[in-house]
Design a protein around this nucleic acid. Structure first.
Length: 241
DNA sequence: AATGCAGGCAACCGCCCGAAC
DNA sequence: TGTTCGGGCGGTTGCCTGCAT
């Protein structure tokens, strides 16, 4: 029993959006908000598929989109996130405010892929192309158990640690986890901290890194990218709800 | 100036998942 | 429990533009 098509394709426009269509969509969403995409085209007077409207809004018309060239910091962040998450563009986009999954995906395929290849790095495995195939250090996160186990394999060494069972990977686009301004004073956060990556090795301001670690020596605690503390995922930095 | 080619990117397609019934 | 529907995601396509010849 197949699914019915999401819209009646015979009477829908396809291809590039016109300025008038954009204006209609923007005006409708401003007036009514994002609601049922299926019924939106008819209500807005658009001869478009609901999916097409959603995509156009999310990837191009949304007012909070950044547009423009990616910064070097964003470049590096995308590479690191990709090495951890793979082609999970929506997850990666969730860590880059104002960027969409489609934009990042395109940017990866056109710019970063080539950049990594030029550096002699396999864009899929993030390892040197010349590196012989072998069992190398890898991180495996298992979500199958009630108690989440994080296994960190370092060559032949294997550590398994019980971690918090209720890892929340439900994501949404929103400002990243921020520190209370009163707690950080008037100082500004570095790029990593502004993205919610406090305690990251990439932190250059050290403001976020001093937060929440008063009982432990922050300089000796090896926080990794994405809040991997000594190889253990700090799920708070991933939580976006 | 005309043509061919490659790169960039917007948009589409098909599949998956969760909610509702 | 099975079916339908809406929304979301990743992969792919195809148009547009700029550059080289």
């Amino acid at each position: 029993m197949g699914r019915s098509p999401c819209c009646e394709k015979a009477h829908t426009n396809k291809g590039a959006w016109t300025k008038e269509e954009d204006e209609r969509l923007i005006a409708y969403i401003r007036a009514h908000g994002e609601g049922c995409w299926r019924s939106l085209p008819k209500a807005a007077g658009l001869l478009r598929c609901g999916k097409s409207c959603r995509l156009r809004w999310i990837n191009y018309l949304r007012p909070d989109l950044k547009r423009g060239n990616f910064t070097k910091d964003e470049d590096e962040l995308i590479i690191k996130l990709h090495s951890l998450l793979g082609n999970k563009w929506s997850l990666i986009a969730g860590r880059l405010p104002g960027r969409t999954d489609n934009e990042i995906k395109n940017y990866w395929n056109t710019h970063i892929r080539r950049k990594l290849l030029n550096r002699g790095i396999d864009p899929v495995t993030h390892r040197s192309i010349n590196e012989p195939a072998q069992e190398v250090a890898s991180s495996t996160i298992s979500f199958t158990d009630t108690n989440m186990k994080v296994k960190v394999e370092e060559g032949k060494d294997l550590e398994t640690e019980e971690r918090c069972p209720d890892l929340n990977l439900e994501l949404r686009i929103s400002p990243p986890y921020q520190l209370n301004p009163e707690e950080i004073g008037a100082k500004s956060l570095c790029f990593a901290c502004s993205l919610g990556l406090q305690n990251s090795k990439d932190c250059s301001c050290k403001i976020g890194c001093n937060f929440g670690t008063s009982t432990e020596n922050s300089s000796s605690v090896g926080y990794d990218f994405l809040g991997m503390k000594n190889g253990i995922l700090d799920y708070r930095s991933l939580e976006m709800k």
